[in-house]
Each structure stands twice: as structure tokens, then as C-alpha cells.
């Protein structure tokens, strides 16, 4: 697909949309937009080889879960293009980043802006925690730490089938606390699965706050290397650096790109909440109004018009 926007523009658009949504709903996964905007923009706008979306621009309502009685069931993966031998596949492993991923789908023209208005609405497929029927999702990843394993299996299978398309997993750094992540790297390395790569948002945050306070994870790059991956590290907000890291050759091994990010990038006013950044909900109307004005100014957009109460 021809890119209509630069990756910088897509990233800006993601922050603006998630900001607007969060202010309007008085809550949202806002810091994940700060840390991951460039990463998702980079994946969708240039790094991944994705075909055109096969799904309607306005997401269809929830149409049931997988079951023998639901033969028409489909996942939301069609938003990432068709399944074929040549195109890449993408998993969003931390499913709570869905809001950011949906904003990205809009920015790259794969979903209509109305899609975001269906976010977390009853009966909608645009779920708060991305489900496999949600736009851009192919598997359920809301239980963190399972994405990389599934991707490794898919990648092994695609290699056996002779596919040239690769498998990419967008990951969060909290996932390294789950043992399964390490089992996944171990298996991918053991089986030489090199059509697999992961881009990890290393924002050093988790639900309870800074990861160092919750559960120290140490030198993740060295640990991944010791488990058999090729590791590249970069500044998550520096697109040339992201490009270079993602281009790291990794014959016979999976590639893990550790994208070191800041959970308030582009919205420095959020630092006043540090370390409570996981889910941003304003404590008062006063804080909401102040953040609305301050962050809008930082992003260079108009403040969100709010109904006066």
C-alpha cells in the first residue's frame, strides 16, 4: 500500500487521537500512546509488508465467539490485510495497547475514525482489551506473555509452508516478568525461527508503577541474548534508529528490538502523575481541564471541547 502520511505524521496522529479520546472519556491508556506511537506508526507505515485491509472501514459489531455454531466467525486480522504467503502478520501482545493500535489503524487509513467512538461500547468489537475479533487483532493476548509463543509457532509453520512473509510481535516490557516469554525465546532460538521478530516497548512501567519498584527485571538485553535471540536496542522515539534496529540481520535466530521509550513522550504534563501512568484517569475536573489545555498545547492541537457540567 502506498503511504499517504509520513511515519512522523502517523505517530503525531496517534498521540492526538488517544489524547482526545482520553480527555473526552476521562480515562484511557494514554501513556502507552506516548511510549509506543512511533513504534506502531513505524510497523504499520513502513516496517511491515501488509496488504490492503479486507475489512469494512467501520468495524462490524461483535458477532460471537468461536464455536461450531458460529461458522461465520472471523478475527480482526483482516484490518492488517489478507492472509497469504508473502505478507507479514502482526500480533499486538499487550492487548491493553488496543486503543493506541486502533488510533494507528485510523491514521493509516485502515479504520474509519468512527471506529474509535465504538471503543468499549456494549456490543462493539472495538474492545478495551483487544480481543481477537477486534480490529487489527488476530489472537487474544489480554493474558500477557502468550503473544511471542503463538507468533513463534505461526512463524515456524509459515516457514514450513514456504511463506516469505514474516511474523512480528509488538510486545510490552512487563511481559518479561512472565516466565512464558523466556520459554518462547528459548524455543524460537532452538528451532532457528528467524522469520520472527519482536518490537518491545521498553517504557519501564507496569500497572503498579515503575518496574524497578514492582519487580526488577535486570539487563533484559543480555538475558534475551543468553536465551538465543539477536537483540537490537534503540531510542523508541528516533525513527532512523528504529529503522536501523529493525534492519539488524538475525540469521537462524529471532530478533528482539528493545525500543527504549518514555511513558510521557510528547505529553510532558503527564509527569505530574508519575509513577501512576498505567491508566490515566483525571482525579478532578480541574485536573482534566488543565491536562486538556496543557497537552493540547504540547501536541499542537486544539483542546478537546468539553461539555460544561
Amino acid at each position: 500500500m502506498r503511504n499517504e502520511k509520513s511515519t512522523e505524521e502517523v505517530a503525531r496522529g496517534i498521540r492526538a487521537r488517544v489524547f482526545e479520546h482520553t480527555i473526552r472519556n476521562n480515562g484511557g491508556y494514554l501513556s502507552q500512546a506516548c511510549s509506543a506511537a512511533e513504534q506502531l506508526a513505524f510497523l504499520y507505515n513502513e516496517a511491515l509488508n501488509l496488504g490492503p485491509s479486507t475489512m469494512p472501514l467501520v468495524p462490524p459489531p461483535f458477532a460471537g465467539v468461536p464455536s461450531a455454531a458460529n461458522p461465520g466467525y472471523r478475527t480482526g486480522a483482516g484490518y492488517n490485510g489478507p492472509f497469504d504467503a508473502v505478507h507479514d502478520r502482526l500480533f499486538i501482545a499487550p492487548a491493553h495497547y488496543a486503543l493506541v493500535a486502533y488510533a494507528c489503524l485510523i491514521e493509516v487509513g485502515r479504520m474509519a475514525p468512527e471506529g474509535l467512538e465504538m471503543f468499549n461500547r456494549d456490543g462493539s468489537s472495538v474492545e478495551m482489551i483487544g480481543a481477537e475479533h477486534s480490529p487489527g487483532m488476530e489472537v487474544h493476548n489480554g493474558t500477557l506473555g502468550i503473544g511471542l509463543s503463538t507468533a513463534a509457532g505461526l512463524a515456524w509453520g509459515r516457514r514450513r509452508l514456504g511463506h516469505t512473509g514474516r511474523v512480528c510481535v509488538f510486545m510490552s516490557d512487563g511481559e518479561v516478568q512472565e516466565g512464558q516469554t523466556w520459554e518462547a525465546v528459548q524455543a524460537a532460538a532452538h528451532h532457528g525461527i528467524d522469520n520472527l521478530w519482536a518490537l518491545m516497548d521498553v517504557n519501564r512501567q507496569q500497572c503498579d508503577g515503575a518496574m524497578d519498584d514492582v519487580m526488577t527485571v535486570g539487563d533484559v538485553a543480555t538475558k534475551f541474548r543468553d536465551f538465543g535471540a539477536v537483540v537490537a536496542e534503540c531510542d523508541a522515539h528516533d525513527l532512523p534508529a528504529l529503522r536501523a534496529a529493525a534492519a539488524t540481520p538475525h540469521p537462524g535466530r529471532p530478533l528482539i528490538v528493545l525500543a527504549h521509550s518514555r511513558p510521557t513522550q510528547g505529553m510532558e504534563s503527564l509527569m505530574s502523575r508519575f509513577p501512576r501512568l498505567h491508566y490515566v484517569r483525571f482525579k478532578s475536573e480541574e485536573e482534566r481541564a488543565r491536562m486538556n489545555a496543557e497537552i493540547a498545547a504540547e501536541l499542537g492541537v486544539a483542546p478537546v471541547p468539553l461539555e460544561t457540567q
Binding site: 465467539v65 492487548a95 468499549n120 474492545e127 478495551m128 482489551i129 480481543a131 487474544h140 493476548n141 489480554g142 493474558t143
Partner: peptide, 14 residues
């Protein structure tokens, strides 16, 4: 165990 059954909007995994 918090959020039993369908008391969470988080979907199947939650």
C-alpha cells in the same frame, strides 16, 4: 479473586 465472571469488561482473557 477479583472481577469474577462477567463483572469485568476485559473480555475472555479477564
Amino acid at each position: 479473586g477479583f472481577l469474577p465472571g462477567v463483572t469485568t469488561p476485559g473480555g475472555m482473557t479477564h
